[in-house]
Amino acid sequence: MNKLTVVVAVLAAALPLLLSAAEPVADAAAGKQVFQLRCAPCHGAGRGGDPGREMLPGTDALRIKYKGALPALLEQRSDLPEPVLRVYLRHGSWSMPAFRKTELSDVDIANIAAYLALSARSSAH
C-alpha cells in the first residue's frame, strides 16, 4: 500500500464526521460548473469518442478499477467528501495527474465535493 492509499483509507474511515463538517460552506451549484468544465471531459457519462471506446477515460478506468463494487461515475459516488477528494486531486491518482492551485482552487475542490454528494444522493433515488 502506498502513502496515498493509506491517507485515503484513513480519511474514508472518518467519512461521516467529515461530511457534516464540510458541507455547509460549499456551493454545489458552483461545484457543478467546475466539474463540467474540468472533470466531465474524463469523468462524464458521455461516450468515449475514440473509435471503439464506449466510455470516457476516467469513467472507464474507474469501471475497471472497481468492477462494479463502486459506481464508475464520480457523480454517483457518495464517498468523496472534500478531504478525500483533495488528496486525490492534489496528489493525482494513477493515470490522473494532480491539479495545481492555479487551475483548481481549494474552494473549487470543496464545491465539487458538495456537488458530488448532492448528485450521488439524487442518483440514489
Binding site: 469518442g49 477515460p57 476516467g58 475497471i64 494513477w94 493515470s95
Partner: peptide, 30 residues
Amino acid sequence: SQMRRNIMHGVPKLYVWWMPSRTDEFPDSW
C-alpha cells in the same frame, strides 16, 4: 478507422486519456 472526430473539427476533448490509463487489457497498471 483511427479518426477522432473531435480534433478534425477543432473540438477539444480528453478522449485520448485512455492511452496512459487502465484498460481492459491492462486492468492493474497505468
